[in-house]
């Protein structure tokens, strides 16, 4: 038990990333409001960003920049995860943009952005057709 706790303590960033991820997933699954789902999605993605950035961290590391007289012993942070996350952030933003655009159209089409009401309207449509 103590082992586990100390392990968690030394890897506390994982704990945060998992907590954030679960919060995000919960929002996506449990919230009925379409916008709140998108916010949940954003939290989920942020959790992943945090995860990536944290694995690039080095104790005592500096920015990965070469300068005159930089001592060999000074480690630098791994820049690659940061770069990857730049891309992932761009992707996340575009997904959010598409999602919000869709929500606006859904609001126009259904007059609501509550999942339950939309499903009820769809069901009524299906009954009307058959």
């Amino acid at each position: 038990m103590l082992d586990v706790l100390s392990h968690l303590w030394s890897h506390y960033h994982y704990v945060f990333y998992i907590l954030l991820m679960l919060i995000g997933l919960y929002a996506v699954l449990a919230k009925g409001n379409l916008v709140k789902k998108v916010i949940g999605l954003n939290v989920l993605q942020t959790a992943v960003f945090l995860f990536y950035i944290s694995i690039g961290r080095k104790a005592g590391g500096t920015a990965p920049v070469l300068w005159e007289g930089k001592p060999e012993t000074v480690p630098y942070e791994n820049p690659l995860p940061h770069v990857l996350m730049l891309t992932a952030i761009v992707v996340g933003v575009s997904i959010t943009a598409v999602a919000l655009a869709l929500i606006i159209r859904i609001k126009r089409g259904y007059g609501t952005i509550e999942e339950g009401e939309i499903l009820a309207l769809d069901e009524a449509d299906a009954r009307g057709e058959s």
């Binding site: 989920l44 997904i95 999602a99 869709l102 859904i106 259904y110 939309i118 769809d122």
Partner: peptide
């Protein structure tokens, strides 16, 4: 149809996960 919007949105949420 408006169902297409909602279908696209659902796919977006699930697909993004």
């Amino acid at each position: 149809r408006r169902q297409a919007l909602y279908a696209g949105y659902s796919y977006l949420i699930v697909g993004s996960i």
